[in-house]
């Protein structure tokens, strides 16, 4: 029974981590848009290439934030959550038994 519970915990943590990384879609689309617009801007005004590139990189970095939050959550779910959950589980079972 305990093995099954631990298995469920591990599986759910992995699933959760994978689902958290769905958030990677958002920054991907957003950064793609940003780069596309930057390319258009450079095509229109090649003399502003430096400024446009700097601003684009800044914007990309800010847009990436949500994706990185997802990454952090996924890392937490994979590396920290299982141990914590199993600890909680064993302690509750121990106190019950």
């Amino acid at each position: 029974m305990l093995e099954l519970a631990i298995g469920i915990i591990l599986g759910c943590c992995a699933l959760g981590a994978g689902m958290a990384m769905i958030a990677g879609i958002g920054p991907g689309i957003g950064e793609g848009n940003a780069v596309a617009k930057a390319c258009e801007a450079i095509g229109r005004q090649p003399e502003c290439k430096g400024d446009v590139t700097t601003t684009m990189l800044m914007g990309c970095a800010v847009a990436e934030t949500t994706g990185l939050y997802a990454l952090v959550i996924a890392i937490l779910l994979i590396f920290l959550a299982p141990a914590q959950m199993v600890n909680i589980l064993t302690s509750t079972i121990g106190s019950m038994g």
Partner: peptide, 16 residues
Amino acid sequence: VSMAFRHYGNVLSGTV
């Protein structure tokens, strides 16, 4: 928080 996580996440994601 976002500044810290941005930098940390980028470097760590590279490592991972």
